[in-house]
Simulated assay, not measured.
Amino acid sequence: MTWPDCSSCGKKQPFTVFATGAVSQILAENSIFGVLDPQLVSRRTVAIDAPFYPLPGLQARLFAVPGKVPLFLESGEPDLNVEGETTVGIELTAGTRRVYYIPGCGLLTDILAARLKDADAVFFDGTLFRDDEMIATGTGHKTGRRMGHMPIAGEGGSLDALAALNIRRKIYVHINNTNPIWRPGSEREHVEDRGFEIGFDGMEVRL
């Protein structure tokens, strides 16, 4: 099998990858990430909790959230709630507005809850509705928590945890195709009745 050379296909465009030190090392050590053409894609390593400015007037800050190492780096049973540089959220602030994007999170700790409290918007890990969803649907053999994702519903779920934080807009993202909230139904209605939104491709949020 041969791969086409799309260097002249008109599909390339420049952008910058902002990453923690650990993720920058992963990108450098794995040849598959060579698809990020260094002539167009610049890489910038940023420290946890250090502010940087991807655009004028927009301050960003990466912060650690509970999770685990990527699947391809697992060796044995991983720590499921380690707070390091491989599972992070991002805080975006502009003027008085404060927004968070957290597509993967294994646990909503007291420290993380305090950070998110009173935010203008939080985009949060909505991978699975129930912890045993992959097992119940026959699409996998791991629970959501084993994969590094806290479920939406059930004991210790993100629905109850986030509802208590007075967040202006709460939006679920990174929704797995087994998660029933992506289509009309009782689970979606339950989430929306609690004041949450379901993210979708092309969604625009104005604050």
Rank of each mutant, 00 (worst) to 15 (best):
M147Q: 10
H141N: 15
L107N: 15
K117P: 13
I135V: 14
R130N: 06
F123Y: 14
F129V: 08
A119Q: 05
A119T: 09
A114L: 14
G144T: 01
L107F: 14
H141T: 14
R115M: 14
A114D: 12
K142M: 07
E133K: 10
G138P: 02
G104E: 14
R145E: 04
I135F: 02
D131N: 09
D118C: 14
D131S: 07
L108W: 09
D110L: 13
V122L: 10
V122G: 02
L116A: 12
A113V: 10
K142T: 04
A136Y: 01
D120V: 15
G104Q: 15
R115C: 06
M134F: 13
R130M: 14
L108P: 00
F123M: 08
T137E: 05
T137Y: 10
T127A: 07
R115Q: 06
F129D: 04
D110H: 12
V122T: 06
T143D: 04
G104V: 15
D132S: 08
M134A: 15
I135K: 03
A114H: 09
T127S: 13
G144A: 02
I135T: 02
L116G: 10
R130W: 12
A121C: 15
R146H: 07
L112P: 00
T139Y: 12
D118T: 08
M147K: 07
R130S: 05
L108G: 01
L108E: 00
D120W: 11
D118Q: 14
D110S: 10
M134S: 14
A119Y: 08
F123E: 03
L112V: 12
A136H: 01
G104L: 15
R115A: 04
T127D: 02
M134T: 11
A121V: 11
M147T: 13
T143Y: 02
D110P: 09
T143S: 05
T139P: 04
L112I: 13
H141E: 12
T143I: 00
L116F: 11
A121N: 08
T127P: 02
R145P: 02
T109P: 07
F123P: 04
I135Y: 00
L108N: 00
M147L: 15
L107H: 11
G148W: 03
D125H: 07
K142F: 13
G148F: 05
A119H: 02
L108D: 03
G148A: 03
L107T: 13
F123G: 00
K117E: 12
G104K: 12
I111H: 07
G148H: 06
R145N: 09
T127G: 01
A113G: 09
F124Y: 06
R130D: 14
D120G: 11
M147I: 14
A114T: 07
T137D: 09
R146M: 07
